[in-house]
Simulated scan of single mutants.
Amino acid sequence: MDVGLVVEQCRAAVPGGTGRYTAELAQALMAAAEGTASLTGWVAEAVRAPELGLPIRSLHLAPQALARVWERGLGPGIRGADVVHAPTLLVPPRRRGQQLVVTIHDVVPWTHPETLTPRGVRFHQRMGARAAREASLVLTPTEAVAAQVRTILDPRAEVRALPPGRSSLPVPDDPTAVRAALGIEPGPYVLFVGTAEPRKGLDVLLEAFAEPVLAGCRLVVAGPSGWGGVDVQAQARSRGLEPVVHVTGRVTDTELAALYAGAAALAMPSRAEGFGLPVLEAMSCGVPVVTSDDPALVEVGAGATLVAPVGDHACLAQQLATAVNEPSPGGRLAAMGRTRSADFDWQATGRSLWSLYRGL
């Protein structure tokens, strides 16, 4: 069996969680391949081809051009593959005799379109509609998203939740030195990890830090700038929070591991998520986690996290204060998080996915 995996998201200017998912999925599939099974990654063009440990082939089109023609169901397809897997909604046209698998990470373009660019909404809605018509199998990262996909898109094919595994971040020899190089002074802090864009709830998080219960607590925001004009530093300055908010911008995996190692808690107050990879990363590092009550985040946490209603900055502040004041290391939330994170395993996901491919 020959499988073609679209890995273009790994080349994106802001790969985000779906870029990490795609890269780690590729590695898990390579590790789980047996017998005559083969896996090839496909990108728009060979420039900056990702190094994923598998053969990479190019479609010889600029990324923007490829997205435009695939959005209309036209253009070059994936050649020589029995099964084609699009791990994002960049979905190629289905060739005769091929099986098409599509991963839909969330339904934000339908439920929260105001948090995306108009172009992004149109693209994802059109691609989602085509995936619903053409896919042989639709995958989601959580049961919460699977239920939403069935309701909103009503795909012809089966919709199945298949969660990702936990990441293995490269822990540096001296995390304190790495944090110092990022400009972070010694002492505990609340960590936010993600792209700065409207649905992540950074405005709610900053309002929470204006609450007295978090007086003296610091916030570190790690991740690239996205869309929607979310300027964390400007928002912090307007609230008088500039002294306690530190924005690192994009970080490497080693820097991210150092940030988790020094964090007193992770905050993820998103308005909507499909999975919430930082929640899993933080739990696996023994960092207490506070999330919004978005259904996917609650599912991933499974009782091992503290939860605040979406948009409720006062409750978020109180929950963060509770998490920050937990004994460290060895607190209840840290222990529960480590236990929960063990339920997510890339090897198991890779084996399950090969089994699903063969069953099509």
Rank of each mutant, 00 (worst) to 15 (best):
L5H: 07
V7F: 09
T18N: 09
T18Y: 02
G19N: 06
G19L: 03
R20I: 01
L25M: 08
A26S: 00
Q27V: 00
L29D: 00
E34F: 02
G35Q: 01
G35R: 02
S38H: 05
L39C: 02
T40S: 01
T40C: 01
T40L: 00
V43N: 04
R48M: 10
P50I: 14
G53P: 01
L61G: 05
L66R: 09
L74N: 08
L74A: 12
L74S: 09
L74V: 04
A81V: 01
D82T: 13
D82M: 08
V83G: 05
A86H: 05
L89W: 04
L90M: 13
P92I: 13
Q99C: 12
I104P: 02
H112T: 04
E114T: 09
T115E: 11
T117P: 11
T117M: 10
R119M: 06
M127D: 06
G128R: 15
A129R: 15
E134M: 12
A135I: 04
L137D: 14
V138D: 06
T140Y: 08
P141G: 07
T142Q: 10
E143H: 14
A144V: 08
A144T: 05
Q148G: 02
Q148E: 15
R150F: 02
L153M: 11
L153V: 08
P155N: 10
A157Y: 03
P163C: 11
G165W: 07
R166G: 15
V178H: 04
L191H: 02
V193P: 08
T195A: 06
A196E: 12
P198Y: 11
P198S: 07
K200I: 04
G201L: 11
L205C: 13
E207Q: 14
A208G: 11
L214I: 02
A215T: 11
S225N: 07
G226D: 10
G226M: 06
W227H: 14
Q235L: 13
A236Q: 04
A236E: 03
E242L: 14
P243T: 09
P243F: 05
V247A: 06
T248E: 00
T248W: 00
T248K: 00
G249R: 00
E255L: 01
G276F: 12
L277I: 15
L277C: 09
P278K: 09
V290Q: 08
T291E: 12
S292H: 01
D293T: 14
A296I: 07
A296F: 03
V298I: 09
E299R: 07
A302P: 10
G303P: 00
A304M: 03
A308H: 06
V310I: 15
G311N: 10
H313F: 12
H313K: 03
C315M: 14
A323E: 03
A323L: 06
N325L: 05
R332E: 15
M336T: 02
G337A: 06
D343S: 15
F344E: 12
L353Q: 11
L360A: 07
L360W: 03
